[in-house]
């Protein structure tokens, strides 16, 4: 909650009962809720930082492509095995290893292509914004998802790096809320520096927004 620091919230009389506003704090409490300073303003976050849409680091495409290639290899191997099995059992295919490998290879190439296209499009669709009162994420290729996470709801913030991410010099930020979709608030493809800055910034905003009730 964004009360001015010198104002004890619980002791504050209701706006109607408080006729004479003795100081600025009470005056702001008297006004419309929308006049309240934003969480970012209260946390002293630079205006220039706010509301700037940010992209992910471009190497994240490589991370996604590598990951999907591993998946494609597994699917390709499976396809090879199935094609071989079908070839031996029925007359659809001629049952040679060569044919089976061709089928598997085709499936592999197809999935790699899908993975590359998806990675490029997903990278283009990704955007996150540190706004005055909430963190905003927008991403998605087929289904576009946009999430607003009010700072007051943030429980804790993690950064994590998988082996692949460490190899590529990337980091992932995960924001947890008490809601069920907490794990959905994940920002991949950040440079470690940027992840650390974002984590610090969000922690400051979260602390500033506190004072409201917990679950």
């Amino acid at each position: 909650m964004s009360d001015p620091p010198d104002e004890p919230p619980a002791a504050e009389p209701t706006p109607t009962a408080d006729d004479s506003a003795p100081d600025d704090a009470a005056a702001s409490a008297d006004g419309d809720p929308s006049d309240q300073p934003s969480v970012a303003a209260a946390a002293g976050i630079d205006e220039a930082v706010l509301d700037t849409p940010r992209e992910l680091a471009s190497t994240v495409r490589l991370q996604w492509i590598l990951r999907s290639t591993i998946g494609a290899a597994v699917i390709g191997a499976l396809a090879t095995a199935i094609a071989y099995g079908v070839g031996v059992a029925t007359s659809f295919l001629d049952g040679s290893i060569r044919t089976a490998a061709t089928v598997g290879g085709a499936v592999f190439v197809l999935f790699v292509l899908i993975g590359v296209v998806r990675a490029v499009l997903l990278y283009r669709s990704w955007m996150y914004v540190v706004r005055a009162d909430s963190l905003f994420l927008s991403r998605g290729v087929l289904t576009r998802v946009q999430t607003a996470v009010p700072y007051v709801r943030v429980q804790h913030i993690d950064t994590r790096r998988s082996p692949l991410e460490r190899l590529l010099g990337l980091s992932t930020l995960v924001v947890y809320t008490a809601g069920s979709r907490g794990a959905d608030v994940t920002v991949p493809g950040l440079t470690p520096d940027r992840a650390a800055t974002l984590q610090r910034r969000l922690e400051r905003l979260t602390t500033e927004s506190e004072g409201a009730d917990a679950v």
Binding site: P33, A148, V152
Partner: peptide
């Protein structure tokens, strides 16, 4: 709707803190 609901959260928390 998305922005309105998120903003209303702060407004209603603010109102609650101020009315006790």
């Amino acid at each position: 709707l998305r922005e309105q609901v998120a903003d209303s959260l702060y407004e209603s928390l603010w109102r609650e803190a101020n009315s006790g």
